[in-house]
Simulated scan of single mutants.
Amino acid sequence: MINPVDSLRLLPWSSPDGKPCYLAGDGNGYVSRLADSMEVAQLSLAAELIEEARPILIRRTWAFDELHGLASELTAALVEVHRVAESRGARLPVPDDDESDGDIAPGHGDGGEPRLSADTFE
């Protein structure tokens, strides 16, 4: 028997007072599909903000208001993406002890682009 607490899903939104929201269930209901759609939208927005940020940061000449606005938007997107990562990570199956991920190159195991190095914007 599965413990219902073990199968709670962290939802991609907070309560009005800022507390995390959770959903119990098999992941096939209306709220689960709504949460999936919202996660996709949040990740898409974060990707768009990254593309906006790159030229601004590379330019190295920005107004305080421009940089402050970008930092605020990126911080909000990072909070959302972090919540999505926590939620999805909590739903991953726990690997057996004999499984190894040693053959995955750092920064390339998630199917996305390699991570940016610190000298990217220098």
Rank of each mutant, 00 (worst) to 15 (best):
L11C: 03
P12A: 01
P12F: 02
W13M: 03
S14T: 08
S14C: 13
S14W: 12
S14L: 15
S15F: 10
S15K: 11
S15T: 05
P16H: 06
P16F: 10
P16E: 13
D17I: 01
D17N: 07
D17M: 04
D17E: 15
G18D: 14
G18C: 03
K19V: 01
P20C: 10
C21R: 14
C21F: 01
C21P: 01
Y22K: 06
L23W: 05
A24V: 05
A24I: 09
A24M: 08
D26E: 13
G27C: 09
G27L: 14
G27S: 08
G29W: 05
G29K: 02
Y30T: 11
Y30N: 12
V31E: 05
V31R: 07
R33A: 04
R33H: 09
R33F: 08
L34M: 06
L34Y: 02
L34V: 04
A35R: 01
A35G: 00
A35S: 06
A35Y: 02
D36V: 06
D36F: 07
D36C: 06
S37K: 08
M38I: 13
E39C: 09
E39L: 07
V40Y: 05
V40W: 04
V40F: 09
A41M: 14
A41L: 15
Q42I: 03
Q42R: 09
L43E: 07
L43D: 09
L43I: 12
S44W: 10
S44I: 12
A46C: 04
A46E: 04
A46P: 08
A46F: 09
A46T: 02
A46G: 01
A47F: 06
A47W: 05
A47Q: 12
E48V: 03
L49G: 08
L49S: 11
L49K: 10
L49D: 14
I50E: 15
I50L: 15
I50V: 14
I50K: 13
I50G: 13
I50R: 15
E51F: 00
E51R: 08
E52P: 01
E52Q: 15
P55L: 02
I56M: 15
I56P: 07
L57T: 02
L57S: 03
L57A: 05
L57D: 01
I58A: 10
I58S: 09
R59S: 10
R60S: 11
R60W: 09
R60C: 03
T61A: 06
W62V: 05
W62F: 09
W62G: 08
W62R: 08
W62C: 04
W62Y: 12
A63E: 14
A63Y: 07
D65H: 10
L67F: 12
L67M: 13
H68L: 12
H68R: 15
G69P: 01
G69N: 15
L70T: 10
L70N: 08
A71Q: 14
S72H: 11
S72G: 13
S72M: 06
E73D: 15
E73I: 00
L74W: 04
L74S: 02
T75S: 15
A76Q: 14
A76S: 14
A76W: 02
